[in-house]
Amino acid sequence: MVVGGSHRSPNWRAHIGATLKGLRRLRNVRPPQMAERLHLSIRAYENFENGKGRLNVERLLRVATLLDADPYATLTALDVGSPEFAQRCANNKLMSILMLALRDFDRKAQDAIVGLDPLFLMKAFSAFFDQLAEHAAEQQEVIARWQRLRDNPDEDGGGEPEAD
Results as ranks from 00 to 15, higher is better:
112 A>D: 12
36 E>C: 02
64 A>S: 13
38 L>E: 04
105 F>T: 10
76 T>E: 14
117 D>H: 02
120 F>R: 10
39 H>C: 13
62 R>T: 15
51 G>C: 01
119 L>G: 04
93 K>N: 11
44 A>H: 02
96 S>N: 05
61 L>N: 14
54 R>T: 14
109 A>D: 03
109 A>C: 12
44 A>F: 00
109 A>Q: 07
47 N>F: 06
40 L>K: 00
123 K>H: 10
67 L>P: 02
47 N>K: 15
117 D>E: 14
116 L>R: 04
91 N>H: 12
124 A>E: 02
77 A>Y: 02
85 F>R: 01
128 F>K: 05
78 L>F: 04
117 D>A: 06
120 F>H: 12
65 T>P: 01
83 P>R: 08
72 Y>P: 01
57 V>R: 12
83 P>W: 10
59 R>Q: 15
75 L>G: 08
38 L>A: 12
130 D>P: 00
42 I>M: 13
124 A>M: 10
131 Q>Y: 11
99 M>Q: 12
127 A>K: 14
42 I>F: 08
122 M>F: 11
119 L>A: 13
46 E>I: 15
126 S>L: 14
87 Q>Y: 08
71 P>Y: 06
54 R>W: 04
51 G>V: 00
81 G>V: 01
122 M>C: 01
93 K>V: 01
94 L>W: 13
89 C>A: 15
41 S>C: 07
100 L>P: 03
71 P>G: 05
129 F>D: 05
90 A>K: 00
116 L>N: 02
41 S>R: 06
78 L>N: 11
45 Y>E: 01
93 K>S: 08
125 F>M: 14
92 N>A: 07
117 D>Q: 06
40 L>R: 08
115 G>T: 07
89 C>R: 05
102 L>V: 07
54 R>D: 15
59 R>T: 06
101 A>V: 04
39 H>F: 09
37 R>T: 00
53 G>R: 08
48 F>K: 06
129 F>H: 11
104 D>W: 07
77 A>D: 02
99 M>W: 09
44 A>R: 02
59 R>D: 05
84 E>K: 12
68 D>R: 13
47 N>T: 05
51 G>T: 03
120 F>L: 10
41 S>V: 01
100 L>H: 10
112 A>V: 02
105 F>I: 07
120 F>M: 11
81 G>Q: 03
103 R>I: 05
98 L>A: 14
72 Y>M: 10
119 L>K: 08
113 I>F: 13
110 Q>L: 05
113 I>Y: 09
104 D>H: 11
74 T>F: 04
106 D>Y: 02
92 N>R: 10
107 R>W: 10
126 S>C: 05
114 V>P: 03
126 S>R: 14
128 F>M: 11
110 Q>F: 09
104 D>K: 12
120 F>E: 11
101 A>G: 07
130 D>Y: 06
129 F>A: 02
62 R>V: 10
128 F>Q: 09
39 H>E: 15
83 P>C: 08
113 I>N: 09
35 A>T: 06
97 I>K: 09
127 A>S: 13
93 K>C: 08
54 R>I: 07
90 A>L: 03
90 A>C: 08
70 D>P: 02
86 A>F: 09
100 L>M: 06
71 P>I: 05
77 A>W: 07
84 E>N: 08
35 A>V: 13
73 A>Q: 06
89 C>E: 00
56 N>H: 14
97 I>P: 00
37 R>P: 00
